[in-house]
Amino acid sequence: MTSVDPATRRARELVRAGLARVAPGPDLDALDDGDDFRDALELDSLDFLSFVEHLARSAEVRIDEDDYPRLRTVRDAAAFLVAAGVG
């Protein structure tokens, strides 16, 4: 297992915590970091919006609608947060 830098680890935790706010349960536990979570967790647009809301608040970053395509998997979303300075 490759070692993960602390910023990425923290960003990943923030993403998963945000998902847990809108879709807690076994599907989230089984979610792989590379899975498209909107499909896997069956998030509708309102769920996704509240996920973005939680994430923007907990990570203290601005997330624009144009950024949504970069929030498809846990891995991508974590990378987005790290690029935005989280960590």
């Binding site: 509708d44 647009s45 919006l49 809301e53 923007a56 997330i63 609608e65």
Partner: peptide
């Protein structure tokens, strides 16, 4: 909608639904 949401805070964004 996109134009409007671009200027809006997350809490004020509007979904197509």
């Amino acid at each position: 909608l996109r134009e409007r949401n671009r200027r809006a805070a997350v809490t004020e964004r509007i979904v197509p639904a």
